[in-house]
């Protein structure tokens, strides 16, 4: 009786609901790609065209030529990779220091780093800009990378993960005469792979998404990132929707690939961001 009831509930409530939710989740992706292949005359045709007909193959090529998108794409890739590696290296080093060593001031340092974790860039953007300006870093890669090369979240995540690694492993290596740096690199780091993967994917996504900071410190075209390029393309005169959707689709593609190939780490990074322990 109960079983039958819940089975009908599944067929008539749960699955239609799941289909609806999936539709809402996927619609903007589908619409972006579909419309990048529509001709501009058919863009707002009534009734709406759900499948592009005829197919317009030119949007991607034309958009890519309209602005230096190759450069923007490479800039974003370079910056995101640099920030990700910085976070993995410095975050794990700092996390290692905070979890496996005892020294004066450790608790205070941890609190200091933790307290900046939730500090939004939107609060500090004015002074941060002034500091970076003092360094002479507006319109440089340094200005785009160095302020974000490590972050409280990465340190926190690595510290929590490293705490679960038994001290005996490290002690044994010390007795064998391994240097501290070697212990970190050859014993501790390989054990952290899941945490590093989660942090790496999480950081890469955030760096790929970065918008407000490049907007503030970049004015030179050769340093524009993909998000800046896309928003500029949108506001520039004469841009057509098919081309804009084409550029948007290319800007999304690396994230979609990242999600499909590293799904576990992608999800883990997010669930860790909400973990209290």
């Amino acid at each position: 009786m109960m079983r039958g009831h819940s089975r009908y509930g599944r067929i008539f409530v749960t699955y239609p609901l799941l289909v609806l939710i999936s539709f809402i989740g996927l619609l903007p992706f589908y619409w972006m790609v579909a419309c990048s292949f529509k001709t501009n005359e058919n863009m707002f045709l009534m009734p709406l065209q759900w499948f592009p007909n005829p197919i317009n193959w030119n949007a991607y090529g034309d958009a890519w030529k309209a602005q230096d998108f190759t450069r923007y794409f490479l800039n974003t890739t370079f910056i995101a990779v640099a920030i990700t590696f910085g976070n993995l290296l410095l975050g794990s080093l700092a996390g290692y220091s905070l979890s496996k060593f005892r020294y004066f001031g450790r608790g205070v340092l941890f609190l200091l780093i933790l307290s900046t974790m939730m500090l939004p860039l939107e609060v500090t953007m004015v002074p941060l800009f002034l500091i970076v300006k003092k360094f002479g870093w507006p319109n440089t890669y340094e200005g785009l990378i160095v302020p974000f090369v490590v972050d409280g979240f990465g340190v926190f995540l690595m510290r929590q993960y490293l705490k679960s690694i038994p001290n005996e492993l490290i002690e044994a290596a010390r007795i064998d005469g391994a240097s501290e740096l070697r212990i970190y690199w050859q014993i501790v780091m390989p054990l952290c792979k899941p945490a590093l993967a989660a942090l790496g994917v999480f950081t890469f996504r955030e760096a790929w998404d970065m918008y407000i900071w490049p907007l503030i410190i970049v004015t030179k075209d050769s340093l524009r990132t993909l998000p800046l390029g896309i928003s500029l393309f949108m506001s520039s005169f004469g841009t057509s929707w098919d081309q804009l959707m084409a550029v948007a689709a290319i800007g999304t593609l690396p994230m979609v690939l990242l999600f499909f190939f590293l799904q576990r780490s992608f999800i883990q990074g997010i669930s860790i961001s909400g973990l209290k322990n």
Binding site: I21, G25, P227, S231, M245, G251, T252, M255
Partner: peptide
């Protein structure tokens, strides 16, 4: 897995793309 991935997709879309595509929609 299919439904969960489909539901999760909005997180994957970059913020700027999000703004551009929704403006269009």
């Amino acid at each position: 897995n299919f439904f969960r991935s489909a539901t999760f997709m909005p997180v994957v879309m970059p913020a700027v793309v999000n703004a551009v595509v929704w403006t269009f929609m």
